[in-house]
Design a protein around this nucleic acid. Structure first.
Lengths: 292, 292
DNA sequence: CATCTGTCTATTGTCGATAAAAGACAAAAT
DNA sequence: ATTTTGTCTTTTATCGACAATAGACAGATG
């Protein structure tokens, strides 16, 4: 098996959901655009749908015959790309499992454990190395540098530099810039979640990413925006395995965000800087507290 | 040929040079340490040297029989690692050749052009992507974002942030820190080169890297230090293909460095910041001037 | 005549295989 | 009692192969 057909399966599943809304499907290129895949894959999807008697397909006419049932879908776990699988497995090892700094990382071992080839593992590790958690010894193994206190401090130091600068440039965006609309939208969601914090506090993590990414993007600097990937992945996995006081922590962060947003809107550099600093300081504290 | 034995060849060449200095070679592990290779490779080197009647080898006794001649060495170009070859070839394409932003990059084509497998090219591109010059479309090609004015501006923006901070923390290093000795050494080299600038101005590039890396290292932040890789590679290749006014440019930069070094030594934050800013501004100008 | 489909080709993602290099361990040597 | 060497095993770097996917082009369709 040279390549898993996960692109096909994932697109197929998404396409099934579309069947609910229409009696006929649009043209092949249009479906391709919708799903973000090539025509080759679209045709494979259509062929499969015809095979399952979900549609009748003859050239331009693609008529829906019946609604999809649960087992027309491919299983969820067959639809994620290999690198996503490796990432999850790897992050669990280094964040959740007892992985000591200095430990050796072995490509072959990881590959065997997940049951895949070494090439994919290698490529993942190379991509992952930019996060500063592992380091390669050429012709030899990788070293786990570990999710340590130093790591967190170095990470937040750069984050603070970048975010302060981004926030400052955000405040200078012209009033009709799309970012202000997005900001308003984000603000509204903050209020929504706060109003029902008991039940919706888990939605914070995603909103947090959306907000900070918006701020970073306004720097219009690829290095700053790219760096935010590191923040994202660290926070994403970190919170996934560390849920103590989540409700309370998130409520506080939401309030800080609202201050921060108000400051951005004021367009007053001093206020922006103060609010940004306050929030970043408490975000750093939160992160540090959860490291042994 | 699964693997080129470049590690062996390169280490062999370096080991030949050692032959001039001693009549007998030390133990295998010691040679390995010296050359930075494993004992397996050391033994291959010794075996080859014995084969060429350069040494007689019996267990612990390794006696030099004759001095190496020119054709005992392996050719230079067989000693560089594959990724170094790809890097050079690729950088030439995108910096020297007429590579338009937006151009597609094709793994297979590069591989064929250099005459190697696709795996190595892929891995190179993945590693290289962190420099922000290319971007991947999953399941499809890479896009060249190009060495443009925007790239240079974004790069220098981050560089300036990082270097100002690093310089500030450099000034706070305890007086007995090893960095001060290294700084003195670098300063002396500056004077040496300036004294014979007509002949030695090409040595600037390497010295420049050494100096700025020293400064960045004092931040003790892996993200800041790692970022300096991008600066290094960009300046390295950029100057290699752009030598207009090199003598004059380098002389000026050397003078600026000396001011900057003096400021660091003064340990006065205001002076440090001023000198650092001055130098970074002119470095940026130089870079920008050479972009169409 | 613009867009869609049928068909064909080219490239990417992943695997397994293999030589090079690293490294483990016990016997040998000082 | 270390350190060195001989031998053996394991891992990495790289290749070639192949299915999945993207993409090109001409003829068909409205």
């Amino acid at each position: 098996m040279a390549k898993q057909n996960t692109v096909f399966k994932h697109a197929f599943n998404r396409c099934l959901q579309q069947l609910a809304h229409t009696a006929t499907l649009p043209s092949e290129p249009e479906i391709g655009n919708m799903l973000g895949v090539s025509r080759t894959t679209v045709r494979a999807i259509l062929a499969r749908m015809e095979e399952l008697a979900l549609i009748s397909w003859n050239k331009r006419s693609k008529t829906v015959l019946r609604q999809p049932k649960a087992d027309d879908y491919y299983p969820e776990d067959e639809t994620s790309s290999l690198s996503a699988i490796i990432e999850r497995s790897f992050m669990r090892r280094i964040l959740a499992g007892g992985a000591e700094p200095g430990m050796q990382i072995n490509e072959l071992e990881i590959a065997r454990e997940i049951g895949i080839g070494t090439t994919s593992v290698r490529e993942f590790l190379i991509r992952f190395s930019r996060f500063g958690l592992i380091e390669k010894r050429p012709n030899s193994h990788w070293i786990l540098k570990g999710f340590t206190r130093e790591f967190a401090l170095e990470l937040t130091e750069v984050r603070e530099m970048f975010e302060l600068r981004s926030a400052a440039s955000f405040a200078l965006l012209p009033p009709k810039h799309a970012a202000w609309t997005e900001l308003a939208d984000i603000e509204a969601t903050h209020h929504d979640i706060l109003a029902d914090i008991e039940n919706r506090y888990m939605e914070f993590s995603e909103l947090d990413e959306r907000f900070h990414l918006l701020v970073h993007t306004s720097s219009a600097n690829r290095f700053i925006v790219d760096f935010y990937d590191i923040i994202t992945i660290v926070f994403h996995y970190h919170y996934q395995w560390n849920k103590t006081n989540a409700r309370q922590r998130n409520a506080r962060a939401l309030e800080e965000h609202l201050d921060y947003i108000a400051a951005l809107r004021s367009r007053d550099p001093a206020q922006v800087e103060a609010a940004c600093r306050r929030h970043l300081r408490s975000a750093r504290e939160t992160l540090l507290q959860s490291i042994p």
